[in-house]
Simulated assay, not measured.
Amino acid sequence: MSEARPTAPAPDSSASHRLGSKGGVPRLATHLWVLTFALLVAAFVPLLLHRSIADALASGASSRSFIDRGVQESVITPPKRNAVGSGPLSPITSYVVEPGDTVPTIAARAGIGASTLMQVNQLASGDSLSVGDVLSLPPVDGIVVSPSPGESVVELAGAYHVDALAICRVNAITLLSPLPSPVFIPGLAPPRPSRMSPVPPDGSRPGLLHFVWPTQGTISQPFFQYHPGIDIANGYGTPEVAAAAGQVVFAGAGSYGIYVEIDHGDGYHTIYGHMEQTLVSVGQTVSAGQQIGLMGSTGRSTGPHLHFQVMHNGVPQNPLNFLST
């Protein structure tokens, strides 16, 4: 006899249909929410992008407007005044002397002092002009100096307390250019032209101490703040003599090229610079007018001349106050 085996109940198709219907509602709702969110994103993202782009464009326009204003203002703003004039200096120009020209009239037309014109062009006096002479005309008053070998524009400007760019403009150089020799320093006042006269003149000037002229020639550089002596120009080998009796305390090469220094007592010393050769030695006693050397151009020099300096207690004095006139 066979035993009846239990069998699993047959699935209820109607129940299965009911479960499927209930599970499809959440899936359809989810799909609807996703579709709705996608539509919202699609609707609002372009609006947000448009606004962001508009803000960016407005910001860019504002920045560009600011930049444009800065450029325009930089163009229309006048240049700052410099120490030697109301604007950028122009380079030194040339002028050919014409009939009837004089140092004062040329200087007046150029807007500079007669002393500047005479110093820049190494004129011994206001009468030393000839028709056809070519003169250098700086745009402002100033002085002419000889730079040290290898000296830069910035170093020279610092030594004379002037604007380095002003030196560049006047001399038509750049900050990195080698300095010409001589070089014009704008903005420094040279001494009056009355100090520049042929040497040696006749006569004598009363004073506490009298010096004889140390050589023959013409004053090419007068005494002023940054040049503590006078330069007397002539040819190589021109005799140089002691301005007064004294004792030689230096004879050789140094800060004035080859030079001689003489102690005259009472705190007075004289210096004879840029010699070609000395003819005396340290400790030697010399008399006034005794030859002590030959004119040259050694050291910081641009041509043969005597740099003659008078010191009293270590302070430079104007030699013209002690020399016969």
Rank of each mutant, 00 (worst) to 15 (best):
K22S: 14
L135F: 01
I185C: 05
S301P: 01
S287V: 06
F211E: 00
A108M: 09
W213H: 09
I112K: 01
T298H: 09
G158Y: 07
N234E: 11
F308N: 00
L279C: 08
S297W: 02
V34K: 09
L39H: 05
V134T: 15
R169H: 14
V45A: 13
P9M: 08
G23A: 14
A251T: 04
P139V: 12
P79L: 13
A38F: 13
S14P: 00
V249Y: 08
P316W: 03
P138A: 02
V199H: 07
I112Q: 02
T77S: 12
A114V: 04
V71R: 12
A244G: 04
Q225F: 09
D263L: 04
Q247W: 03
A29D: 08
H17K: 10
G23K: 10
F224H: 11
A4I: 14
F184R: 01
R51A: 15
I67N: 10
A164N: 02
H210Q: 14
P200A: 09
P206Y: 11
G283I: 09
G267C: 11
L47I: 09
V134F: 03
G299Y: 02
S62L: 14
I53R: 10
A124P: 00
H210W: 04
Y95W: 08
Q122N: 13
S125T: 15
V310M: 07
V286H: 01
L320K: 01
G203W: 03
T302M: 07
A124T: 13
N313F: 07
A253T: 14
T174H: 07
P139W: 04
Q216K: 10
G24M: 13
A166H: 01
K22Q: 14
P149F: 07
Q225D: 10
G267L: 10
I112E: 01
A83N: 11
S59R: 12
T77Y: 07
G20R: 05
T105K: 14
T238H: 07
N318P: 10
L49R: 13
S194C: 03
